[in-house]
């Protein structure tokens, strides 16, 4: 029996789902012969669907999303958080720094009264999560890694060391040596440091390692010319929910 896989969309940009599909033909054939994808889009009645593995995309930022997520959790044998918003709250949590009414006004203007919104949070702040496919957007290879691990019955091996490891493996010149700053030293690797490889720096989209040395990272950001506020802003982009910005 092929496991049935469903994708559910919460508050996010759907960029994560798009990424799922960025497979080459061969990979997609293999994927579809290993699992049945029963549902790709937002659906209304989760309970009637028949699925084993639920991929949750987006963060939880509306009251109404909570029961919906809980229902999915009840049905799914395995629940996977897909993408930065789902795994760590991600960019959506930026609004947590504003009072809620204000956030609503900024987003929805005069229609604000029709929406309920709560401080955004990652999926695991609401239900238990079995696996994480991190990143913004998430990396196809990592998604496949998780799926293969599920099929083989082993733990997916997701690194617990910082991006610097992969950045150095790629032979990059550290951005700190080029007048920029970077969250690589506290961010969980697994992306092969793509942002640094392509001339930018790490924003922390994969979340923090298990035991990050935040104090040291803040000291380094300061040493390289950021003010305390700027250093905190840097963490806020993706890692507001992890409360390192306090």
């Amino acid at each position: 029996m092929k496991p049935k896989v469903a994708f559910f969309d919460f508050t996010g940009c759907e960029g994560c789902q798009l990424d799922v599909l960025n497979l080459d033909g061969e990979e997609l054939i293999d994927l579809l012969s290993a699992v049945d994808i029963v549902n790709f889009r937002e659906v209304k009645t989760e309970r009637e669907d028949d699925y084993d593995i639920a991929f949750i995309e987006g963060s939880i930022s509306r009251e109404s999303e909570i029961p919906r997520l809980q229902k999915i959790r009840e049905q799914a044998k395995v629940l996977v958080a897909l993408g930065a918003c789902a795994c760590i709250g991600g960019i959506n949590c930026l609004k947590n720094h504003l009072p809620m009414e204000e956030a609503l006004k900024i987003v929805y203007g005069k229609d604000a009264k029709y929406y309920d919104t709560i401080p955004a949070r990652p999926v695991d702040a609401v239900v238990s999560v079995d696996y994480y496919v991190r990143g913004c957007p998430p990396i196809t290879a990592e998604l496949l890694k998780v799926i293969k691990a599920l099929l083989l019955g082993k733990e997916p091996d997701i690194p617990n060391h910082p991006v610097c490891v992969e950045c150095k493996m790629a032979g990059n010149v550290c951005v700190f040596e080029r007048g920029m700053t970077c969250l690589g030293p506290v961010t969980r690797a697994g992306c092969d440091a793509i942002c640094v490889n392509s001339g930018r720096h790490c924003w922390g989209c994969r979340g923090l390692v298990d035991d990050p040395n935040i104090d040291s990272e803040k000291d380094i950001l300061k040493k390289y010319g950021l003010t305390v506020e700027q250093a905190v802003e840097k963490f806020k982009i993706y890692n507001t929910y992890a409360e390192v910005t306090k």
């Binding site: 910082p162 610097c164 490891v165 150095k168 493996m169 030293p185 040395n213």
Partner: peptide, 13 residues
């Protein structure tokens, strides 16, 4: 080691 980030840069280079 207080400020060590366990970032691995030292061994990778």
């Amino acid at each position: 080691s207080e400020s060590c980030l366990s970032c691995g840069s030292c061994v990778m280079v």
